[in-house]
Nucleic acid binder design. Structure first.
Lengths: 349, 349
DNA sequence: CTCGCATATGACAACGTTGTCCAGGCTCTA
DNA sequence: TAGAGCCTGGACAACGTTGTCATATGCGAG
């Protein structure tokens, strides 16, 4: 009873109602299936008259080509995936936007998802995107082991990691110069006379945090300053703990006169704490943020160019897809010190 | 010569190298195709022993189910589309994130794109998403005519508009209470003694801008204040022109003592201008923004809940998909006045 | 007038998966 | 021990599209 079979089948898959297909269009226009395909894809070899008839049928039925079928047949999806940490974080907005812009220029759509800083979720997402057969993948790593992507990469999925390096596999990576930027920022404070400089940053297991810490240490060492343990606060990002950490550094027998903060969230909280503080304390933060110039004093920052990170990564991705590249590369983009006042305050004891 | 045909065909679609298929897995495991499908989908009716063999073959070959084919067969993509204005705008980050969160809870992926405020691009994007057969669409309108979506909606694509209403079609809409919020904000200024209150906002052809302007007028009228044309500046968003507009209102024979700003970009620029101004001028802005509390004085705002907008829209979308709903609805979410100082300054002439 | 050629069109298979249906082997019971 | 019923596994078609190839049509040249 094929009739029944068909009906059941239809029902199971009928989330769309029944959309017209090329076959329907062909029937209505009184032409062959392939002719419709030709018209839809602008292929040559169709008389203007035939084309008109087909176009009419398309409009009348509200036909829209089913790209799933097309993808299945052609093998390419013209879409790329973006796995990022948190879309709500203002740092990733411009990055994501830049990736999308490049994708668009290459006629591709962007599918994205947030890992919420959870390695398992990152993997789940990345693999889901691969199952969709995205042509390529831009990943902002949450975890530090990406071997799970090996079969995908081998199968031809272009892959670029951004902001943090890939773990345990050889792949393209686009990073900011976290080490150099932090070093410059801290050196800037030292140049303005500070010697007791605090560092508040994320857990060193996060690559960017580790690099920035390394930059801090290097700048201090360059200046011949020995760093006291009490000046460093690692693995601290939530406002309450940042607050406590900053307050501890500022009190005690040997209080810091300046603080270097490891990312924008920490910077903002630190600035809040310092605003309540009696003595002015110098601050340089890693990451720029909106309105940093409007605060009193303006906040001096080491800025990374999020859009450039995204753009560079996406362009690299499409070059992979075009078959241009062979050897994975590590690209480091420079940071920029923006002086606004808070980093130029002299030490006050 | 079918051999040749096959080879050419392969080449055309071989962006992925040749990924293993269920057929390959079946061959390697020595079972039938459908058995592999059963294992992959966790369907019952497979002996543990068989399952083990299949799983082994899957791992060995690095097989990953091709969701394109799956989609084609099943009719659902388990993905939804989001068309927004600009991912780099901090307002849309939390909104997008909220949509994604709901999608994830329903096992769906999120595909998104930015319209860059261009109606043509919005349409192009929305239709591209429909061609991918997304199950549903969340649209932040750039244009004001959405009849192009009618065939899609009729075909069963769930659709919800957010932040601005749909144009010329009947559909679900989730909005902030722009009118009420603006009215409250302006009333707040009036309550603090202001009578000459300026308004700087976007072009009234944008729905939100028009509603906020309407709220401004209503509050003024309620207080029996006649609004002078010179107090209103419409269609002004780029920093330079906002600057000029604000300066004009503040000079002249009858300067305003307070300004109500129509969105966060305008607010920020206005605050910049006022920071340079000699006399303190009160400000209330529509839209909250990060660090508004840290400025001197803190900026009083009418806050909308971007995340709630996204969440509400997405939930509505999935209820449509579950077939719960029939009649399109217009949902308005309340705004919240957050007082921080700038809106409580008394008038000074 | 006919042959050859170019051009327009259609038939058909294939992409990789899932739903349906059937076959074979097993257990359990009468 | 035979038959009923269950469980496992596989053959096959179908989803909607595109690439290949074959055919039909019309036209100009010989």
């Amino acid at each position: 009873m094929p009739e029944t079979a068909r009906r059941t089948d239809r029902l199971a898959g009928s989330r769309y109602g029944n959309r017209p297909t090329m076959k329907d269009v062909a029937a209505r226009a009184g032409v062959g299936l392939k002719t419709v395909s030709r018209v839809v894809n602008g292929e040559p070899g169709v008389t203007p008259e035939t084309e008109r008839r087909v176009q009419e049928a398309i409009d009348a039925l509200g036909f829209r080509r089913n790209d799933s079928a097309r993808v299945l047949r052609k093998g390419r999806t013209a879409s790329i995936g973006l796995v990022l940490e948190d879309l709500a974080d203002p740092f990733y907005g411009p990055l994501s936007r830049a990736v999308e812009e490049v994708a668009r220029a290459h006629g591709a759509l962007l599918i994205n998802g947030s890992s919420a800083e959870d390695p398992d979720r990152e993997q789940e997402l990345a693999l889901a995107l691969c199952a969709r057969r995205v042509d390529g993948l831009v990943v902002i790593p949450a975890g530090d082991d990406h071997r799970y992507l090996e079969p995908e990469i081998k199968a031809g999925v272009a892959t670029v990691f951004v902001d943090r390096p890939a773990g345990k596999i050889d792949a393209d990576v686009v990073l900011s110069d976290n080490y150099g930027g932090a070093r410059d920022g801290v050196a800037h404070l030292i140049a303005h006379g500070h010697r007791r400089i605090g560092f508040v940053g994320d857990m060193p297991r996060i690559h960017t945090a580790a690099e920035r810490l390394r930059g801090y240490r290097a700048a201090m060492e360059d200046a011949g300053i020995e760093v006291a343990d009490a000046w460093m606060s690692l693995g601290v990002t939530d406002p309450q703990r940042v607050r406590r950490a900053a307050e501890e550094m500022l009190s005690g027998p040997d209080p810091v006169t300046a603080i270097f903060t490891g990312n924008n969230r920490v910077t903002v909280t630190a600035v809040r704490v310092l605003a309540e503080h009696k003595r002015p304390v110098a601050v340089v933060g890693f990451d720029d943020f909106e309105l940093a110039d409007l605060l009193q004093p303006g906040v001096t920052v080491v800025a990374q160019d999020a859009a450039a990170l995204g753009r560079t990564a996406a362009e690299r991705l499409f070059r992979q897809l075009d078959g241009d590249l062979i050897t994975p590369e590590r690209i480091e983009l420079p940071t920029r010190l923006i002086t606004r006042g808070s980093g130029e305050l002299p030490p006050r004891d």
